[in-house]
Design a protein around this nucleic acid. Structure first.
Length: 591
RNA sequence: AGCUCCAUAGUUCAACGGAUAGAAUAGAAGUUUCCUAAACUUUAGAUUCAGGUUCGAUUCCUGGUGGAGCUACCA
């Protein structure tokens, strides 16, 4: 039991003894800094069980606890808030427990437990990854880490959208205008090369539309009749028919893209246990639709297309099979979900996909439920906000995107500039320096994105560079580096248990902050929110820096002080490292 | 048009229905013979509007305003 649980337990016992009532939940909060005390009991909710004046009740409880429970040495009541002052010894005990736990805050999965599958990234293979994908990847990867740390088995996966009209557009433009260009011949990253032809396609397409409009067609007609689009559609049909030439081209260009993606994933530090490919899953789900029709979940319209009517659930009608019998996005997602539950023993399945698809997933989950899959209740859409530019939405076709690779490079360069200006790295060789710039640059980028609640949209202004001071990744990394510096210099044994130590306020606050870590992880796992971990770490570091500023550690007066403060620093360091690990951010030994 | 989401200091972010709404940055003023000043300390500055529920509302409900997204036989 940590100190908080001890106090809460005492308070609950006390109230039951005084009033002879059973209270299952009380409202506690940590006492605000401006008041005396460690834990605060809010009296108001108790008024439901106990009639009377909140202040009188609070005082009565406080007096009883002070007399009967050694954990509580004092109290005060302000309005309806009972502030309890804890016995200092339980802080020290609490810290000893934390200090000795090597994997503090991290739980191991119970054997034979089911897995949580986290899907993220899931790119189209016709263009490079941009900042929006970066947010997706960082979120998915971090949420997977956090869920794992909360004591679950995790399977990371992505479904690669490797087929469809989009890739045909790139393929067609490459055939028409590529002159046989390859990543090797151009020196371009494969995904960049393929992306260029996607843009090239769009340029021609737009021109053709304009031309058709001047010839008197409506915009809608023009969009459907542009020759280059018709060719792309023809190519898709050939692909579906297994045309040798088209399939070979498709394979070749996809390979280029995969190489490019893998380089970006490596740079970002994300990975997957299993990849699914849409080309292998797009036919899934059709049989399920037929079964569903027998059950009366779906119905067929006159033209042969199959629909589900969700108007009773406040939604629309949704198509699940085209009139020509082919599958749509929804059909495929139905099939893939079933396949995943067949393949793995899953406790839940989390889709990391932008909030523009909120509706799609609402419908998907509802369909699964209507089809009678009992696991439909354990499907979650980790819906995150768009990353917008000041000019609006990022659009690959129009070139208004922040490219992932370029952004990562820029971040490293900024880190280098700042580091060189500060000039603290004489002892590092070139390779060590480059690695450090990478750690810091990526740390700044990842923290910038992950500290924001996933649900909220992020406004990214390319003209304003991402900060390295204040509430940032490098700020936290810097604190870690300072702690490591202290540990390197500590020339005494500090690992033995310190007893009879008189904690000062800063030390006490730090212990309180450390103590929160396990519940922060559980909370973040529950809410699928790395932001909670990021904000916690920032608070911890702020607390530590304040402590560091006003307390000598290695130059403290007594050996006991030195030992305790070094232990405290060490543990803060390990928690920083652990928490940042959950965010996928590395920490440097010096900076 | 309908549906969904969002609105907090100049800016970027916090706040299980709880105390005087916290940080960071930009602004003002300080701290380095002492463990790394990418740090610390002090200071000024905000809940879109109108109602309602509640002992108590940034948080829940209704309405208005402003912004984003979705409403494809695309994925």
């Amino acid at each position: 039991m940590n100190f908080q649980e001890k106090i809460e337990f005492a308070a609950i016992s006390g109230i039951q003894e005084i009033y002879q009532i059973k209270v299952d939940s009380l409202e506690f909060q940590s006492t605000r800094k401006e008041f005396d005390g460690d834990i605060t009991l809010v009296i108001f909710p108790l008024l439901r069980y106990i009639k009377g004046n909140p202040v009188e009740i609070g005082t009565k409880i406080g007096e009883y606890l002070k007399i009967n429970f050694p954990e509580i040495i004092d109290f005060n009541v302000i309005k309806g808030f009972l502030n309890l002052v804890a016995n200092p010894t339980i802080f020290l005990e609490s810290f000893q427990e934390i200090y000795q736990n090597e994997h503090y805050g991290i739980l191991n999965p119970t054997t034979n437990s089911k897995s949580v599958m986290v899907e993220y990234s899931s790119p189209n293979t016709n263009k490079p990854l941009h900042l929006g994908h970066v947010r997706n990847n960082l979120l998915g990867y971090s949420v997977a880490n956090i869920i794992e740390a909360s004591g679950k088995k995790v399977i990371k996966t992505q479904i690669i959208n490797d087929r469809g009209i989009h890739i045909c557009k790139s393929m067609l433009a490459w055939e028409l205008y590529g002159n046989g260009a390859t990543p090797k011949s151009t020196g371009l990253k494969g995904d960049k090369l393929v992306g260029n032809y996607y843009v090239a396609f769009d340029k021609v397409y737009k021109k053709e539309i304009e031309q058709l409009i001047t010839e008197g067609k409506s915009e809608e007609e023009a969009k459907k009749q542009a020759p280059i689009l018709l060719k792309a559609q023809e190519m898709l049909l050939k692909w579906e028919a297994g045309d040798e030439h088209v399939v070979a081209l498709w394979k070749k260009m996809n390979e280029w893209v995969y190489e490019g993606f893998n380089a970006t994933y490596l740079a970002l530090g994300v990975d997957f246990h299993k990849n699914y490919y849409e080309s292998q899953t797009y036919l899934l789900g059709k049989e399920v639709v037929n079964e569903g029709m027998e059950k009366g979940v779906f119905y067929r319209k006159e033209d042969g297309s199959v629909w589900i009517d969700l108007t009773d659930d406040g939604l629309d009608e949704k198509i699940v099979l085209r009139s020509d019998g082919t599958a749509v996005y929804m059909t495929q997602d139905i099939g893939t979900a079933i396949q995943r539950y067949k393949e793995f023993s899953l406790e839940s399945l989390i889709y990391t996909v932008g909030n523009e698809q909120d509706y799609h997933f609402k419908v998907l989950f509802l369909i699964m439920k209507k089809l009678g899959y009992e696991w439909a209740d354990h499907l979650y859409h980790l819906s995150y906000g768009m990353v917008d530019l000041p000019s609006g939405k990022m659009k690959s076709r129009e070139g208004t995107v922040v490219d992932a690779d370029e952004l990562i490079e820029e971040m490293k360069n900024s880190a280098q500039e700042i580091s060189e200006e500060l000039g603290k790295l004489e002892s590092y060789n070139k390779i060590e320096k480059q690695n450090l710039y990478r750690i810091i640059g990526l740390g700044a980028l990842k923290y910038f994105i992950l500290k924001v609640d996933p649900k909220k949209r992020i406004l990214f202004d390319p003209k304003e560079s991402i900060d390295f001071n204040g509430n940032t990744g490098p700020f936290i990394q810097y604190t870690y580096a300072r702690i490591q510096s202290i540990l390197r210099k500590a020339d005494f044994e500090f690992s033995q248990t310190v007893e009879n130590y008189n904690l000062n306020d800063k030390e006490k606050s730090l212990i309180k902050q450390l103590q929160l870590y396990p519940e922060v992880i559980q909370n973040a796992a529950q809410n699928l929110s790395p932001a909670l971990v990021a904000n916690y770490t920032f608070d911890l570091v702020k607390e530590y820096n304040s402590f560091y500023q006003s307390n000598s550690i290695l130059n403290a007066d007594t050996l006991t002080e030195k030992q305790f403060r070094t232990q405290l620093s060490y543990k803060v360091g390990t928690v920083i490292k652990s928490a940042f690990g959950l965010l996928g951010i590395e920490v440097p030994e010096r900076m």
